[in-house]
């Protein structure tokens, strides 16, 4: 087991190292999410409620995540590194888990900017929103990484990923917005947790089929 987790750690470290060297994903995500919030500011009528802006926060998070996910397998597609990893890794789900950890880290970094920016521009962010974002990140990274691997193997690539991803992420948006705006966030948070559990297991079990024949 420590061997498996060691593989995951090595692969996740590689993701972070590549980002540290090239800095082409996280800065783009941060800039994108702040830009999106500013655009939303101008798309809301003056008398729109804070609740409406919380809904937009979730749109911003999902689209920022798509940015991270489109980049997720770029380094591996180049030079067919993914094939090398597929041959070298005993249990290939470790490749998925390592990538999920990397995507999660990028999401959290972008949100560390996005949530304060949202609080500054729109409305205070409650603990329930923070908890919902944390739970949503897991589901988004788990499902998104698997779909990113699929999209990377197709011809349409960047174009295909949002199409595959958005219908699957609707429940996450429902859970997130519900937790943010409803007086009783508990069941929405529980729903997000359920989503994470179900889809993480499904993605973990099926990754092998997506990267190998």
């Amino acid at each position: 087991m420590s061997g498996y987790l060691g593989d995951v750690a090595a692969l996740a470290r590689t993701s972070l190292l590549l980002e540290l060297r090239q800095r082409d994903t996280v800065p783009a995500m941060v800039l994108f999410v702040v830009s999106a919030l500013v655009v939303f500011r101008f798309s809301l009528p003056a008398d729109a409620s804070d609740l409406a802006s919380l809904g937009l926060l979730w749109i911003a998070i999902v689209f920022t995540a798509i940015l991270a996910l489109t980049r997720a397998f770029v380094a591996e597609r180049d030079q067919r590194v993914l094939d090398g990893l597929v041959l070298a890794t005993g249990d290939r789900s470790a490749i998925w888990l390592g990538k999920v950890a990397g995507v999660l880290a990028f999401l959290v970094l972008a949100e560390l900017v996005a949530l304060p920016a949202f609080a500054l521009f729109f409305a205070a962010v409650g603990w329930e929103t923070v908890a919902a974002v944390a739970l949503a990140n897991v589901g988004i990274a788990a499902v998104g990484t698997l779909l990113a691997a699929m999209a990377a193997a197709s011809r349409a690539r960047e174009l295909l990923l949002p199409l595959l991803f958005l219908p699957l992420v609707i429940p996450v948006v429902v859970g997130g917005v519900g937790a943010s705006v409803e007086p009783d966030p508990g069941r929405y948070l529980a729903f997000l947790g359920l989503y994470d559990l179900i889809f993480a297991i499904l993605a973990w079990a099926s990754f092998d089929y997506v990267v190998a024949e």
Partner: peptide, 13 residues
């Protein structure tokens, strides 16, 4: 089923 649950939950807000 997950979407069905989500749609029911979303009706509240």
């Amino acid at each position: 089923p997950v979407s069905f649950l989500a749609i029911r939950l979303a009706e509240n807000f």
